[in-house]
Write a protein that binds this DNA or RNA. Structure first.
Lengths: 202, 202
DNA sequence: ACTAGATAATTGGTCGACCAATCAATAATA
DNA sequence: TATTATTGATTGGTCGACCAATTATCTAGT
């Protein structure tokens, strides 16, 4: 290829994107430097020029995916005016990502598996969850301020939102016939509205 | 070792258990026939005597884990008398498993990653989810019959229960400081009670 | 009871394929 | 010319699968 100065960050990004595609296609067990190099249309050697080793590449891929999801969720939530609309935006952004760009969610799942056995990856994972909890927590706090959300521990409520979205996204990823985007979104909205709306239904 | 006739099923089980332990310890990427053989205290060759290939071993491990979880959930749910108690029993059984025998949930996560790229494993996964949905659906249907559960689509409600339990179990697996068993159980019970109890909280 | 196959269970080693990482050499830019 | 970027070949090692040989157990005939 034609090396150009200042290409560093671009090449790196190119390799990370290729890693994500390979990971989605073949899984971590089938992820090889050769395949990533072929997918990125570069030589094998250069992968180790930009990344110390394979695990570093996986971590970069995970960081990129979580950052993209964050950006997408934040962008959709920005347009919403009240707490309920904001929550709905978060729900739709997460679930849409799980359906439309299946790669993302596939990478997440592969990544979880490795994060259980690699400290670096585990740290990345914890950070991603913490950021998501914070993002959701802010939305909930605003809702509580305007009286649309009942008095709940924001941290716990964020964990509930996150957990439900994770679980539904898994179902969306594994069996798209049984679980559709519209159904998942409707369910999530109903469950969370009932959980968060003031008043005791019992 | 000393081969004995009728040892077949025992050896097989022994290998499956060793596979589960190895999977929990090293992940699928680090799962090798050599390690499983060492863990099971048998020779490498015999693994291929009982299983066609590595994927078959993984599938057997996944089947064993799901069956164990099923049995455990069913056992705890049997003691409950009304719908609410039954739901609570299911919640506790699932979440306790996620905490106590971490191996189980680890195997699930590793398994998901591979199931995304292997048809056989994907089929096993679908079956497991279908069985879980059915089990939960039955509990919900009984609750509806006695008027303790509002009118909801049982299939959808089961998906919600399953999704929430999956999501909370993930959090329990990844960060036991932030999410504890008692907190997860309390959250799940609150959310699901509000979702399923008759009456409109809005 | 004893033994001679037949069968089931198990071993240890072999083999080709493939992998991650390294490196000397080279090309492009500053 | 010095630095950065990139290549392609090499290397040492490991992996999954396969297989010939061996041992244990069962069965039937005597």
């Amino acid at each position: 290829m034609t090396p150009k100065l200042g290409m560093g960050p671009l090449r790196r990004e190119q390799i990370v994107r290729a890693t994500i595609r390979c990971l989605a296609r073949d899984g971590y067990a089938g992820l090889t430097m050769k395949r990533v190099a072929a997918e990125a249309r570069v030589s094998q050697g250069i992968l180790h020029y930009y990344f110390r080793d394979k695990a570093a590449m996986l971590a970069a891929a995970a960081l990129r995916v979580t950052a993209d999801l964050d950006r997408r969720v934040a962008a959709e939530a920005r347009g919403a005016r009240d707490a309920r609309a904001r929550l709905r935006a978060v729900i739709r952004a997460c679930l849409e990502t799980a359906v439309e760009s299946r790669d993302f969610w596939t990478v997440f799942i592969e990544f979880w598996g490795e994060a259980l056995h690699d400290r670096r990856l585990a740290a990345v994972n914890r950070q991603a969850y913490a950021r998501a909890r914070r993002l959701i927590g802010v939305a909930l706090a605003r809702g509580r301020a305007t009286g649309h959300v009942r008095r709940v521990n924001p941290e716990e409520a964020a964990a509930v939102v996150l957990g439900l979205l994770d679980g539904l996204s898994l179902q969306l990823t594994f069996d798209r016939r049984l679980m559709t985007l519209s159904r998942a979104a409707r369910l999530a909205e109903t469950v969370l509205a009932r959980y968060l709306t003031p008043g005791d239904p019992r």
